[in-house]
Design a protein around this nucleic acid. Structure first.
Length: 566
RNA sequence: GGCCCUAUCGUCUAGCCCGGUCUAGGACACCUCCCUUUCACGGAGGUAACAGGGGUUCGAAUCCCCUUAGGGUCACCA
């Protein structure tokens, strides 16, 4: 029986809506580009009553091994992208997604299937064994480059007689299998890019099975898309010309052809490709700018440090990078979905913004949710050109979403964010204090991180608070006459006399003082107060700030400030 | 370098397929002013683009060609 005829119910798919798939190689983290591809695939299929499936392309043994290889599933889940079929994943709430009738969904577990089809092609003379060593191929490639010619495999192995091939195989000579590509131009049909014709000879006899027995990407992808009944392949534009290879394979195997759509790349503002190495790049730049020769204490081990600085290809692991970033006071560029989560972005905002990079619904609409995306997403409106990822606009969207949500939701989300990323911060606050802080922070927050980032004064011990030495601080405390510190000293007794330490009561006292001594200019006392209790010139409204701190703490800080600065 | 693709404000984009309604619209960023106890938020205004050159046409951001620029791809990676 030929494997082709064994392909299960391949007509059944047509009636049930489109089937799309997201097929990344294994990774612990989901890259934003991948996230957008997944989002589009998901929206396209689901919005049309179809199915979205997930498949892990782990055919490169060198690159895929460890248990965290599908760590990115949590990122997809966080974004709200679920899959009808694919690897099983247990959500935080205990429910399970994934599974399905076309598994396994890890290509490394499907070797038998690929081999059946590869054997078929070899039998039919549509593929052949090749014994060229990597060194030989490399030399030929170099020669072609030197001669300014495009390298194409020269079909050396095709000149071998069947007997020679047999002998080589028997002798255990390492062999790959190559696809024998028929002569002729190939026209790719793409719903986003339109048609493109590759001239005859452009596609050479590419490898479909590697020496280690694993199929190459090209082969596995074609077989699985057929077997998993995928109808629409939406993937990054870097795969565009690969499509020709896939078409050759589909023809050789007698498979139907899915519809293709190639999505534009998302790049950095400077046009470079967004890469996980950008974090290391930012860190290296900071190290250089500060002229550091040794790692800041408590960040990166010396040995690791030397290795990292010495080789641009070495990447710091996540925790090291994080510690170093904090020590150097640099903000790491967010690249992966979980970077954005850590930075306090909302999943619905990330989805919205990602969708806007490369697609738009028109009619000046740009704020929308995934339900809308499902309803409206279509291929003709997908942009053909690469989009530069604009973090400022993302931030603005996030700000709108946060300040626009009701208070209870904000409090819940910001607490959850803190529990995950700033437990030590939370520990230092009572429930009341946290609630007051959250109330005071909501309307000025652009991310869930802002509360934690901008209010270090809350968690610093009263006797550890240090006052910034900056122009603004000096202006508030020491300039003019009377000076800020003088006013503070004057205000101290009445503040101390406040009974119920509530924002409104404090405000009454301070306002009274300002009316009497500052011609009503409350800023004249508010700023010195702020500096005294927070160490800097930025905080939530001063009366909230004082209330959150509590009377004892606030008075202690004022006293300490006065004795230090005055 | 070969092949393929693309080209509207600084950025994301609407408009292009079905030429006139485009002295090109929106959003982010930027600038000015207002609000204001700091920082933000908010409000009002403003600067800012059809890559260049040829056609076609009464008329082109919209159609065609060339140039230029950018991107992708040329692996036993995906």
């Amino acid at each position: 029986m030929s494997p082709t005829s064994s392909s299960p119910d391949s007509n059944a798919a047509a009636s049930a809506g489109p089937v799309t798939r997201f097929a990344p190689s294994p990774s612990g983290h989901l890259h934003v580009g991948g996230a957008r591809t997944a989002l589009f695939c998901w929206a396209f299929a689901r919005g049309r009553g179809g199915k979205f499936l997930l498949r892990i392309e782990d055919t490169d043994q060198k690159r895929s091994s460890d248990a965290a290889s599908v760590g990115f599933l949590k990122d997809l889940d966080w974004l709200g992208i679920d899959w009808n079929e694919g690897p099983e994943f247990t959500r935080p709430d205990g429910t399970i997604v994934g599974g399905g009738p076309h598994g396994p969904y890890f290509q490394s577990e499907r070797l038998d299937i690929y081999n059946r089809y590869i054997d078929q092609l070899v039998r039919e003379g549509k593929a052949y064994f090749a014994f060229d060593t990597p060194e030989e191929l490399d030399a030929k490639r170099k020669a072609a480059t030197a001669a300014k010619l495009a390298y194409r495999y020269d079909r050396a192995a095709l000149k071998l007689s069947p007997a020679e091939v047999e002998a080589n195989l028997k002798a255990g000579k390492p062999a790959v299998v190559r696809c024998k590509v028929p002569a002729g131009a190939i026209t790719i049909h793409d719903l986003i890019l339109g048609d493109a014709t590759l001239p005859d000879g452009e596609v050479d006899d590419f490898v479909i099975r590697k020496v280690d027995g694993f199929p190459t990407y090209h082969f596995a992808v074609v077989v699985d898309d057929e077997l998993m009944q995928v109808t629409h392949v939406l993937r990054a534009q870097e795969h565009f010309t690969n499509t020709a290879k896939h078409m050759v394979l589909q023809d050789a195997l007698g498979f139907r052809r899915p519809t293709y759509g190639h999505l534009p790349i998302i790049s950095n503002p400077d046009g470079s490709k967004m890469s996980k190495r950008d974090k290391d790049k930012a860190l290296r730049a900071a190290v250089q700018a500060k002229g550091l020769t040794a790692p800041p204490t408590g960040t990166v081990a010396q040995e690791r440090w030397t290795k990292w600085l010495g080789d641009k290809n070495v990447q710091l692991d996540f925790d090291d990078a994080l510690r170093l970033a904090e020590a150097l006071d640099v903000t790491l560029p967010e690249i992966n979905v979980d970077d954005f989560k850590r930075s306090g972005y909302l999943p619905e905002v990330v989805c919205n913004f990602l969708a806007l990079n490369g697609w738009s619904p028109g009619e000046n609409v740009e704020k929308f949710d995934t339900a809308f995306l499902q309803q409206r997403f279509d291929l003709p409106r997908v942009q053909k050109t690469a989009a530069k990822f604009d973090r400022m606009k993302l931030l603005a969207f996030n700000c709108d979403a946060i300040t626009g949500m009701d208070r209870e939701r904000y409090v819940k989300l910001v607490r959850e964010h803190g529990e995950r990323y700033h437990p030590e911060f939370l520990q230092r606050l009572t429930a009341d204090q946290f609630r007051m802080l959250a109330d005071a922070s909501h309307e000025r927050s652009k991310t869930l991180e802002d509360l934690y980032k901008g209010n270090r004064w809350v968690v610093i011990a009263d006797d550890k608070l240090a006052w910034e030495d900056s122009k603004n601080v000096r202006k508030a405390m020491l300039d003019g006459s009377p000076r800020g510190v003088d006013r503070l000293r004057e205000l101290q007794p009445s503040l101390n006399a406040v009974g119920a330490w509530l924002a409104a009561d404090i405000e009454a006292v301070v306002k009274g003082y300002a009316d009497q001594h500052c011609e009503g200019q409350i800023g004249k006392v508010a700023q010195p107060l702020r500096v005294a209790v927070t160490g800097g010139t930025v905080s939530p409204p001063i009366f909230d700030t004082l209330a959150i701190l509590g009377k004892a703490s606030a008075m202690k800080r004022i006293e300490r400030c006065l004795s230090t600065m005055a």
